[in-house]
């Protein structure tokens, strides 16, 4: 049956219309989870709050398990979903830039927009930076980034295939790793907070 859009089962405007509601839900979720506060994201790097790591691991696994379950029952054709090609060199560099931005700014692109819309000044400043980055990239693309962009192309890289196992088994292994990570970060969080308690965001009234 699915995916709906690539098979033209729904029109372009309807696709955008649905996207708006998904986006609203995502924004509400981020705000409700306290992600619009920089301390939440930065907490991962200082070790006092690992909610972000848990949320992203859970989200990725929910998506993966859900998609492949639907695929195995014929509700969606996984081959028709968007599968970006991997270019490991630019991805690595961008990952470093993004990680640095996480620690310095305390936002990721999505949460910065949420924070800006709730009126947080640091969020607004961060969004300003995002736009400077976007335009900066666009205007220097030909002179700086054009060559870099296609370096280290691996095509459609699929780790499970490279390791010679089924996608389902690979997802299950990642799931086990995630659960172990959950338990370990919980212990770290407890230890850090016992040593040097950080006031909870809720208590600060931010």
């Amino acid at each position: 049956m699915g995916p709906l859009f690539p098979q033209e089962l729904i029109s372009d405007p309807l696709n955008l219309f649905i996207a708006i509601f998904i986006g609203i839900g995502f924004g509400i979720g981020l705000e409700a989870g306290g992600f619009t506060n920089t301390r939440k994201l930065a907490g991962v790097f200082y070790g006092y709050d690992f909610v972000v790591l848990k949320v992203f691991f859970t989200a990725a696994l929910t998506g993966a398990i859900g998609l492949f379950l639907m695929d195995s029952y014929g509700l969606i054709d996984i081959n028709l979903t968007f599968y970006p090609k991997t270019f490991w060199i630019p991805t690595l560099i961008a990952g470093i830039v993004m990680g640095l931005g996480f620690i310095l700014g305390g936002f990721c692109p999505g949460t910065s927009i949420c924070a800006a819309s709730t009126g947080k000044i640091d969020g607004i400043a961060f969004v300003g930076g995002v736009f400077i980055g976007i335009f900066g990239y666009a205007f220097t693309y030909e002179s700086l980034f054009q060559n870099l962009r296609s370096k280290g192309g691996l095509g459609k890289a699929n780790i499970a295939e490279k390791l010679g196992m089924s996608n389902e088994l690979f997802i299950f292994i990642v799931l086990i790793i995630a659960i172990i990570a959950f338990i370990v970060v919980d212990k770290i969080q407890k230890r850090v907070n016992e040593k040097k308690p950080v006031e909870k965001i809720e208590e600060l009234g931010l």
Binding site: L61, T62, I65, G66, S72, E168, I171, F172, L175, I179
Partner: peptide, 19 residues
């Protein structure tokens, strides 16, 4: 947390079986 981990484990095993 325990509930979510349990739920994910169950769906993960379901996925393996459906394979």
């Amino acid at each position: 947390d325990k509930f979510i981990i349990g739920l994910m484990l169950i769906t993960g095993i379901w996925l393996l079986m459906s394979n």
